[in-house]
């Protein structure tokens, strides 16, 4: 899917998006004011963060939390909030600290 076109002739017929998942090219990470920091040492890989993340931003590898997709994470904090209280493997940190 081309993002920039020179002519209407370059568009797929009928306004369809002819490939899946093209939204990955759109970065919603800059919406964030709080950044989730994942601590893999504390993490018990219960995957609660993964099932509840509205932005599909919890990246798994072999059924374990590998990282957080900061290009798309909007910083809602659901992951940190849903992480079991005894585990607390995700902490929300002020995004300004990283700029």
């Amino acid at each position: 899917m081309k993002e920039n076109i020179n002519s209407w002739k370059d568009l797929p017929i009928g306004g369809i998006v002819d490939e899946p998942g093209t939204a990955m090219a759109y970065k919603t990470g800059d919406w964030r004011t709080l950044r989730p920091i994942h601590n893999s040492e504390k993490c018990i890989n219960c995957l609660a963060c993964w099932i509840y993340c509205p932005d599909s931003a919890i990246i798994l590898k072999d059924g374990k939390v590998e990282s957080i997709d900061l290009e798309h994470c909007k910083g809602c904090g659901i992951c940190a909030h849903e992480c079991p209280p005894k585990v607390k493997a995700i902490e929300m940190v002020d995004e300004a600290d990283f700029r």
Binding site: A23, T28, R32, D55, D69, H72, C76
Partner: peptide, 9 residues
């Protein structure tokens, strides 16, 4: 996938 424009949360 990510990159949709639903509100955070």
């Amino acid at each position: 996938c990510g990159g949709h424009r639903a509100c955070a949360g």
